[in-house]
Amino acid sequence: MKYSGYILLAIVWLALPFVLERHAIDLLVFCGFYAVAGAGVGFLLGQGGIVNLGQAAFYGLGAYSSAYCTVQLGLPAPVGILTGVVVSLCLAFLIGRPILRLSGYFLALATLALGIICSNLFYEAEFITGGTLGIPGVPKLSVLGFALDTPTKFYFLIWPVAVLCVLSMRSLMSSRIGLAMQAMRDAPEAAMVLAIDISRLKLWMFLISSVLGSVAGSLFAHYVGFVNVDSFGVERSIFFLLVPVIGGAASPAGVLVGALFVGLVPEALSVLGDIHRVLFGLALVATVVFFPDGLIGLLKRLADTCIPARRQALKMEQSR
């Protein structure tokens, strides 16, 4: 997309909070959390072909760390966020080393099991997590003395963070490491011949994904002000996975589009009554079946057919 397109998008983004209703902005903030955590999952999926069904565990760790550090220990917010990152890295390292030896369905099952085990432990470790009742009263974040206590204010924090995460993933993808990861995914035997340490790469990717999940969780805790184990179950992990699946795992912009879909569509469908969950399931099945490159792929194809400049470029490419 050309620069003019990006500038237009930025202007729209800036203007939105002033034209939308509060709960719509609230939804967009949640989309931001989905984008950050989903970027991690998308990274693993798109670059490594790894299905990670345990991202909610790291999301929860980040959220609980932030909540515990600020509420029980009275420490400042950044300490909580950092604690979350460190704890998540440790867990990802300890668990990642052994399970990343698996692949395909087995790895997916192992990540799912990880998610469930953590969920179980969140319930049990009442003295830290507050069990079923959770930890309320998580303080709002303040940036430069300015408290982020409304959806609009948080919107202006989370979206730059999300875009930053997504852009970092993109630059990682085009770096040497990223190319090595693609080699690993597309031609593992060749990659091995080139002395690319596959297991180390996979571990790095898993660590990065866990950090993204943790940061998203910490920010979530400071936004909602209340952390509870119900927010960190398998369904949440599935939603995080849906972000790159629906949006398009191969492209970072796909993560943003996917996050918007996953955050906004269930809410939009809920006006249709109790059947909304069924419809959401159908929408996602349709996306998997009919839009293999995700919505980004769809948008690209639409752009290719509708925008004359792109049509020309495509024709020239095809005739070459």
Partner: peptide, 23 residues
């Protein structure tokens, strides 16, 4: 399609069926 797509397809269907059974 890649392996993950099938997994995700059936996950999506599972979600749909569960909601449908409730409904």
């Amino acid at each position: 399609a890649r392996e993950e797509s099938f997994l995700l397809l059936t996950v999506g269907l599972g979600f749909t069926f569960s909601a449908a059974v409730l409904y």
